Amino acid sequence: AQASVVANQLIPINTRLTLVMMRSEVVTPVGIPAEDIPALVSMQVNRAVPLGTTLMPDMVKGYA
């Protein structure tokens, strides 16, 4: 199954992502693919992302 990017902590709005904030997990619905984690580093989220939330393309500025 495809692993997705999941928030490893609460990520406040406009925060630049770092590796420690993200983990890969097989979840439904599928979000951003886990292999994109390196590309997500330093991108900003456009909303607060609670712990355990799957990151979707529309949550990350410049990803989609």
Rank of each mutant, 00 (worst) to 15 (best):
T15N: 05
E35Y: 10
D36S: 13
Y63V: 04
L55H: 00
T53F: 08
Q44H: 15
L17T: 00
V41Y: 08
P50N: 12
V49I: 10
G52S: 12
G52I: 03
V30P: 12
E35N: 10
P33M: 10
P12Q: 14
I37R: 10
S4F: 02
L10N: 15
N14A: 13
V6S: 02
V26M: 08
A34Y: 08
V60D: 01
M22V: 13
V26C: 05
S24W: 07
Q44P: 08
G31Q: 02
A64N: 13
M22E: 02
V45Y: 00
R47Q: 13
P29E: 07
V41E: 11
P38C: 06
R16C: 07
E35D: 12
M43H: 15
P50F: 10
V20S: 09
T18F: 04
T15L: 04
P12M: 09
R23E: 04
I37M: 13
V60R: 01
P38W: 11
I11R: 00
N46Q: 08
N14P: 00
P38M: 13
P50E: 11
T18M: 10
R23A: 09
G62D: 13
P29S: 04
A39T: 15
L10H: 09
N14M: 14
M43P: 01
S4W: 02
T18W: 03
E35Q: 12
V27A: 06
M59I: 06
M22F: 06
P12A: 11
V6P: 01
T18V: 12
I37D: 00
M59K: 01
A34T: 08
D58F: 06
E25K: 05
V26Q: 06
V60N: 02
V41W: 06
T53C: 04
P12V: 05
M43C: 04
T28C: 07
R16I: 12
P50S: 10
A64K: 15
S4Q: 02
L55P: 00
Q2R: 04
Q44C: 04
M56Q: 11
L19N: 10
A1R: 03
V41D: 04
N46Y: 09
D58M: 09
T28P: 01
D36H: 12
T18P: 00
T15F: 06
R47D: 14
R16S: 15
M21L: 06
P29Y: 03
R47I: 14
P29F: 03
M22S: 01
E35L: 10
L17Y: 00
V5G: 01
T54K: 04
L51P: 14
P33A: 07
K61F: 10
V49T: 05
L51V: 11
V41C: 05
P38R: 09
L55K: 01
N8Y: 03
E25Y: 05
Q9N: 09
V45P: 02
P57H: 06
A64P: 13
M56E: 06
I11Y: 00
A7T: 14
A1D: 15
A3Q: 08
T53H: 15
P57G: 08
D58E: 09
I37L: 13
S4G: 04
R47L: 11
P50G: 12
R23N: 10
E25I: 03
E25H: 11
V5R: 01
S4T: 04
A3K: 06
P50I: 09
V5M: 02
N8M: 06
R47N: 10
A64G: 12
A64R: 15
M59Y: 10
A39L: 15
V49K: 00
S4L: 01
R47F: 07
R47A: 15
G52W: 05
M22K: 00
V6R: 03
M43E: 11
P50H: 08
T18K: 06
S24Y: 06
V45E: 02
I11V: 08
A7F: 02
L17S: 00
K61H: 13
E25P: 00
L55W: 00
I13T: 11
L40Q: 00
A48T: 14
V27Q: 04
Q9T: 13
V60H: 01
S4K: 00
T54C: 04
A1L: 11
M56N: 07
S24E: 15
P50A: 12
Q2D: 15
V27T: 12
T18S: 12
P57E: 05
E35P: 07
T18L: 06
T28W: 04
L40H: 00
E25C: 04
R16E: 08
L51A: 14
P38S: 11
A48I: 14
P29T: 06
D36M: 13
L19F: 06
V26H: 11
T15S: 11
V60L: 09
